[in-house]
Amino acid sequence: MSDISSSAPRKRGRPTADEREERRDQILDAAVALFVSSGYGEATVDEIAAASRVTKRTIYTYFGDKAEVFTAAIERFRSRALADLETEAETLQDLAARVVFVLHSDDAVGLHRLMIGESAQFPNLAQRFYDSGPQGYIALLEQHLSHRGNAPEAATESEALFGLLLGEPHRRRLLGLAPAPTREEARDYAVRITTLLGHSETAPEMT
């Protein structure tokens, strides 16, 4: 029996917003898989187009060049991870636990390893990775600390907190010496770090 769906004609006309978003995700999913498996330098726009089943023109229309695809993937990762975050509603320990859980995950660690390996050859890309990734989390921590009344010290403290939330556990993750933490393990670690810095608030469990 033939596959009816594969022989059905594609719809013509301008795609809807949902269709555009679905296609965008399709391209980014394929690109991340290629970047991690082949390396950023080796992966080509042609390969990304073939893997995501779109044309090169579609990729250029949606993103621009390959560097824009990579940056968009990093930004999407961060926005999805913290999509339902309400800065004023969550406690600092809630936010810290999310950061630990997200950045110690397999996906985040894979992208981090990739960028470390490619940074010497692509320094501009490394800067964009930092701006879209780590710097974004630091800014979020700074915003939260400012809301707590620590505005003068928030910039310095947010960088220190971010560094501690990664710490040696993240180094072990990069080296493949430890598995990704569970949500409970991420919260336990975040509570220890925030308490060390003098933020010993009690917070509800993450959902």
Rank of each mutant, 00 (worst) to 15 (best):
T194M: 09
A139Q: 12
S79Q: 14
H104Q: 08
A120G: 07
A155N: 14
P15R: 13
R128A: 01
I193L: 12
L82G: 05
A178S: 13
I193Y: 04
R187E: 03
R171C: 06
A139P: 04
S6L: 13
R148I: 03
D84M: 12
A51I: 02
L92V: 00
S7C: 07
T16P: 04
T44L: 07
N124I: 12
Y130S: 12
P15N: 10
D84W: 10
I116C: 12
A126P: 03
G136P: 01
R57K: 15
R12F: 08
L164R: 10
T16L: 05
E68M: 07
K56I: 13
F162C: 05
A43E: 01
L114I: 00
D3P: 08
E201W: 07
Q121H: 13
V45H: 02
H112V: 09
Y60S: 06
E86K: 11
R173Q: 06
G136M: 03
Q127H: 15
S158F: 02
I138H: 06
A96P: 03
F77Y: 07
T194E: 03
A190M: 11
G64S: 03
N150H: 15
L177N: 08
R98N: 07
D107M: 07
A160D: 07
P181R: 09
A154W: 04
P15S: 10
R53S: 15
A155H: 14
R148C: 06
A73R: 00
L161M: 13
A180D: 05
T55L: 12
Y60A: 07
D188A: 14
V54E: 01
S200W: 08
D3I: 11
G64E: 01
A51T: 02
A33L: 08
G117H: 10
A43S: 10
R128I: 00
I27T: 02
E205R: 14
I74G: 00
D46L: 12
S146N: 05
S6W: 08
T61E: 11
I59E: 01
D25E: 10
S2Y: 09
G133N: 10
L125T: 02
D3T: 12
E153N: 15
G136T: 03
K66V: 00
R128S: 02
E86H: 13
P169G: 06
T87F: 08
S52H: 00
L177E: 12
V54L: 05
P152S: 12
E159D: 11
A203I: 07
H147A: 11
D29T: 03
F70D: 00
R14M: 12
E90W: 09
E153G: 15
L164A: 13
S6Q: 11
G163L: 02
A160H: 08
A81L: 04
P152Q: 08
H147C: 09
S158N: 06
D106Y: 01
D131Q: 09
I138T: 10
H104P: 02
H147L: 12
R57F: 13
E168G: 07
L174W: 02
L164M: 15
H112P: 04
D3G: 13
V99E: 00
P204R: 14
E21T: 10
V69T: 01
